[in-house]
Design a protein around this nucleic acid. Structure first.
Lengths: 226, 226
DNA sequence: ATTATTTCGTGTATTTGATACACTAACCGG
DNA sequence: CCGGTTAGTGTATCAAATACACGAAATAAT
């Protein structure tokens, strides 16, 4: 081992990274944020935002920091997804990746090209480029988790702005479930759950009847329902 | 750094361990397997079985290996639970713990005192000793996950031997849910799910009518129902 | 053999939640 | 004021969850 490698241990240690699958809904489609790698391995390929864990931060802090550094995005819903550990998943050295999935509303954000000149962009899940490492697998798992939680949590609301119409909410469900839902049944179901409150305001867009707007009753938490 | 610390890196690396919450049902109670620590820190305190990741194994292999080494138990249901990363959770160095929860039937196993003379024993969840590290928190999370999966998976069957009676199965559910269930509704529910097959054999224990025995239709997999 | 004791195994009525389905209301623009 | 567009609403049907009580089959004791 060369001299300037100054962090030494009795036993071998793996590197630990976080990778974040950040979803949003844009153009009536579920999209995921990817960055283009500036360095090898997989140079110039697209990959999930993420990076190595610092010794003084938790994994969740690491995930948030990397997202902020690489994309300028902050203040979003974040949940631990799974920890990947296949020995050869990174060609450089042994790397354990703790993955998170994150949700954000589509309106507020433009992924800024990060400080270190990496490109960041949204990709539709149906049109992903070839991805570095095992990131394609991670995205599939994240999508699966997201869909599985739709019907017993308020997770979907994290994909909408603070106030929204029931039609917008239904559109989110339809995109995630890949199926049309009945408007009356959908609204009835939301009433039963008691997670929405009318704002008293209306959304007045387009040449049609204005829609009541709603907000989540407990906006800070993703509630598990029942 | 001293000379015999021979694994060196450009950047600091955390240690990575797995810890396993192995549940079983004994004495009509949900119990967890603990080992008594032979070395500092927390020497002689009880802790979850687990240990450091080898560089050539996946986390799941590590969890299985540690369980086998420390308790002689193998061939059980294992599922990744959560990855813990609070910077000071281990006083020795930065340690990331990837936790698993495992289930086994109560009959087949006696936790053998491990090779390196650690004591292993079952503890009821209601009477846990003081635990090393953040292991109490890990056990609580594992229990929560287990209970949450009861009603949409066949996970509970992993706590029973290959063939079992409906009364035994109901007892498992009642212990995990901490509530009495109605016998007829329970059996009706199991029929609806279509996950059980009669063996044709009967269980003849005690001075009462023998009970039909059943086995799971797909015993190798925990099915997600619906 | 009869009886006491124990667990096994079963059906029906009620409530609750999920599904299927179609028209009027309100606004905008021309 | 008329055409176009999205918002908002009720009822009937089916499936799933709940509440509830008694005869059947074995063993042990007399």
């Amino acid at each position: 081992m060369s001299q300037h490698q100054s962090y030494c241990y009795h036993y071998p240690h793996p590197a630990v990274t976080t990778d974040v699958v950040l979803f949003t809904i844009r153009d009536e489609d579920l999209q995921v944020l990817l960055i283009q790698r500036a360095n090898p391995p997989f140079r110039e390929m697209w990959a999930l935002p993420g990076g190595f864990l610092n010794m003084d931060e938790s994994l969740e802090q690491c995930a948030k920091r990397e997202l902020l550094e690489e994309t300028g995005i902050e203040g979003l819903y974040l949940e631990q997804l799974y920890t990947f550990s296949t020995p050869d998943r990174d060609p450089r050295e042994r790397v354990i990746s703790v993955t998170y999935f994150a949700l954000t509303q589509s309106d507020t954000l433009q992924p800024k090209a990060a400080s270190d000149a990496q490109e960041a962009a949204w990709f539709s899940l149906t049109q992903l480029p070839e991805l570095a490492f095992d990131h394609a697998k991670i995205i599939q798992l994240a999508k699966q988790r997201l869909v599985a939680k739709l019907n017993y949590s308020t997770i979907a609301f994290q994909l909408l702005p603070e106030t929204f119409t029931l039609s917008q909410l239904q559109a989110v469900y339809e995109i995630l479930l890949s199926e049309k839902l009945d408007k009356r049944n959908f609204r009835k179901g939301m009433q039963t759950r008691q997670v929405l409150r009318e704002t008293g305001e209306f959304s007045r867009t387009g040449n049609h009847r204005p829609a009541k707007t709603y907000r989540v009753i407990n906006p800070t938490r993703v509630e598990i329902i029942k």
